[in-house]
């Protein structure tokens, strides 16, 4: 049986914003990665950043400071 886990998934309206967020989070050591947007969430640009549930505040603050606009931050259960 494959395991799943709840992640915080951040979606973006623009692909370039998702790519910029990936670089930003890498620089700030926010754990996580770019993934294609999970089917459970509505479209957006198709890319999302998947991070740990406890990173919401840090991620939000970093995006605001960098002026990167995000669309949604949602908990989503994904296969690990």
């Amino acid at each position: 049986m494959r395991q799943s886990k709840e992640f915080l998934v951040i979606t973006f309206s623009q692909t370039t914003d998702a790519m910029a967020a990936e670089l930003l989070f890498r620089d700030l050591c926010v754990p996580g990665r770019i993934i294609p947007i999970p089917r459970q969430l509505s479209a957006g640009c198709g890319l999302a950043f998947r991070t740990e549930m406890d990173q919401k505040q840090q991620a939000q603050q970093a995006l605001v400071e960098a002026g990167i606009r995000w669309h949604e931050m949602e908990p989503v259960r994904l296969l690990v």
Partner: peptide, 13 residues
């Protein structure tokens, strides 16, 4: 590069 990374992730799902 982003797309191929996404493709290989999507394979795992």
């Amino acid at each position: 590069a982003v797309l191929i990374k996404g493709f290989l992730y999507a394979l795992t799902q």
